[in-house]
């Protein structure tokens, strides 16, 4: 089982700032997990410990049963692909195709297989029209797509996204939606660092909430994001659907059948259907 395990991990930066303390965490193969918490809680440090960019100063991080200290850094970076916040930091080639070639360059596979991997990702993310373009002449959304492609083309076993929704319009969201749903179908492990509770509520199954370098909460997304004490202590806000249902029900002592149905709804689309039905709209 290719899981990631943190065994009583601590991490201290060279300036003596302790970023993480006593982290014990088990992430199973195929999990869709979110890491949340306020600015400076230790989220980015945690993901950099996963692929060996940082080494723990206390305890051990295991990938597939082997500590990250024992892995060759280039192998681990290939197995755990991290997409950082600013795609610009990852792109430097003169064309999009060269960028993909560079991503595949250090993979220990045949030339033919590299070409196959490249064409698979071009088709999957529909990159054909961008191949000859400079990444710098692409829009923000396109650059996001290219940086995702550069990670995905190496077929990592674990996909890590650092604040993927930042600065994204609907177009950027659609790309993310496609990538995450396809990774879910492949039963790939997905780890997302985010402040965005809307995104977490929609896509992530389990949340780990960090506060001041420690794990404050770890559990199913639906439980974490409806717990006002956890939200208050980690600088998070309720997802819109949770807040909307709470506001509707808290001031209606006698609940009607419709309001009871609304409380059970998971999405605004479901609420729309309930209202339309209750108003006799069957279209």
């Amino acid at each position: 089982m290719k899981n990631i395990r943190f065994d009583n991990v601590g991490f201290q930066y060279s300036n003596e700032l302790t970023a993480l303390r006593e982290i014990s965490l088990n992430i199973q193969n195929g999990e869709v997990l979110g890491i949340m918490g306020r600015n400076g809680a230790g989220k980015s440090t945690l993901i950099q410990l996963m692929n060996g960019l940082l080494k723990p100063t206390k305890g051990n991080v295991f990938f597939d049963g082997i500590t990250t200290n024992e892995y060759d850094a280039s192998i681990l970076v290939q197995k755990i692909g991290i997409m950082f916040q600013n795609p610009e930091h990852q792109l430097f080639s003169s064309t999009v195709e060269e960028e993909l070639n560079f991503s595949l360059k250090n993979l220990q596979i045949s030339k033919d297989l590299k070409t196959q991997y490249k064409h698979e990702i071009i088709d999957e993310l529909n990159l054909h029209s961008l191949l000859g373009k400079s990444p710098w002449n692409c829009s923000g959304g396109e650059r996001k797509k290219i940086s995702i492609a550069c990670i995905l083309c190496r077929k990592p076993e674990v996909l890590v996204f650092d604040e993927p929704t930042l600065g994204q319009d609907k177009g950027g969201y659609r790309i993310l939606d496609t990538v995450i749903n396809k990774a879910k179908q492949r039963k790939q492990t997905i780890i997302v660092v985010t402040h965005n509770t809307e995104f977490a509520y929609r896509y992530l199954d389990r949340l780990v909430v960090l506060e001041n370098g420690r794990i404050l909460a770890d559990g199913p997304t639906g439980e974490i994001l409806t717990n006002s004490i956890i939200l208050e202590n980690s600088s998070l806000i309720e997802p819109q659907i949770v807040k909307f249902k709470r506001l509707i029900t808290e001031s209606i002592p006698q609940q009607s059948n419709v309001s009871k149905l609304i409380v059970q709804a998971r999405t605004f689309n479901e609420i729309e259907m309930i209202i339309r039905k209750s108003m006799g709209d069957t279209s």
């Binding site: 402040h195 998070l236 806000i237």
Partner: peptide, 13 residues
Amino acid sequence: DEPTATLDPQAAE
């Protein structure tokens, strides 16, 4: 220009 994009929700507020 997007002053709260990188902030956590309560800091943004």
